[in-house]
Design a protein around this nucleic acid. Structure first.
Lengths: 205, 205
DNA sequence: TTAGAATGTGAGCAAAGTCTCAGATCTCAT
DNA sequence: ATGAGATCTGAGACTTTGCTCACATTCTAA
């Protein structure tokens, strides 16, 4: 059933203009995804919006899925970049401060482009995510988090990392979708939940 | 841009066989959605699987969206039914017990058909959810929860209800999708997070 | 300058999808 | 039994979409 589809670019752009085409295509893809969801993302629409012909698009992306896969991969890399600074800092702190720091970075990331990131999460579920690059990118943040939790002696760090990620993503997205834009308020509500999960009393030092 | 689409059935079935057809269509739709996601749900596929002709399908559903809307509405009604017993009981308890009770019911609901319910959530975002019946069904659980939280003197019960719903859904779905099936374990991890959110210390009576 | 490689173009094909319609079949009150 | 209305059928009209291909244009190295 599961058809094998190539998810890597057909050819690597060498000249400047072709690299610009590829960027334009990906940008257009992200914009369309954000504005109209995956239902609106057709290859013709992407090419139109990118200002290139449909032929050019297929010169660099062998099929529609490849475009989506690359968008997902970039989103994950962005997440990694947004988080890694905070996680590095957090290693030098106590659990309470570390949690706050990482939580803050996480919320900032989710708030960066909430609609697009939500849409890309749906897309990710659609793609047969055996694609190496995409999975590798996804694993980066997980690994960081797991190591951090482990260093604090949290039991089952893999499970905790998954739980906390999902829990935060769920609440933050819901709040943003509902129109909230005060990130500090969201963070203030979410922090005690995370502390609760980790078994840290809210009031104490 | 946003085309206006009729979301209510074209005609109401009167005889038994037509009611059976409608049920078969909705059941088929749910099965296809669960097995292959929204990409696999075509009107032809639904009619085939339901064992009725495509003409019969369009006799009762003026378009594809109507089928999805009805599935979403039923899912919400199911959620309401799954929750209302627990919420009623919870009214007679203290906050700690009430929270546990509602949480338990919520997890049971999410575990009932996790793939389908996740898929229907995506669908819901797709549909222009101005449809009265669907929204009304969705509001039922919210209202119940808000009232319950209000009765315990929780500040901003609307926000808390939304936060907690999203937080639970996010974590439970992630756990289930990852293959976990020990609901008690999930509940045991989630409970302290919810207690934390509500400002109840875990250890105390 | 110029050949060859890289890049761009867009009409249009094939497949898949939504939805209609004219007529066949079934049900039930009379 | 029978007629009117309810229900069912499925070929196919029409649209959309992913994708190809033959050809045009631009760039680069010698």
């Amino acid at each position: 059933m599961a058809r094998i589809v190539q998810l890597t670019p057909r050819k690597t752009p060498r000249q400047g203009r072709s690299r610009a085409s590829v960027e334009a295509i990906l940008t257009a893809g992200a914009q369309i995804l954000e504005a109209g969801g995956i239902g609106a993302l057709t290859t013709n629409a992407v090419a139109d919006r990118a200002g290139v012909s449909i032929g050019t698009l297929y010169q660099y992306f062998p099929n529609k899925q490849t475009i989506l896969a690359e968008l997902v991969r970039r989103q994950k890399m962005q997440f990694f970049e947004d988080m890694s600074g905070a996680v590095q800092h957090a290693k030098t702190m106590d659990l309470r401060c570390a949690t706050s720091t990482v939580l803050h970075a996480s919320i900032l990331h989710h708030a960066r482009a909430p609609v697009l990131s939500r849409e890309l999460e749906k897309v990710e579920a659609t793609i047969d995510c055996d694609e190496e690059d995409v999975c590798a990118a996804g694993g980066l943040v997980d690994r960081q988090l797991i190591e951090l939790l482990e260093s604090f002696g949290i039991a089952w760090p893999e499970v905790a990392a998954r739980d906390l990620s999902a829990l935060c993503r769920g609440m933050v997205h819901a709040a943003l979708m509902h129109g909230e834009c005060d990130l500090d308020a969201i963070e203030a509500r979410l922090r005690p939940a995370v502390f609760g999960y980790l078994g840290i009393a809210e009031g104490g030092a």
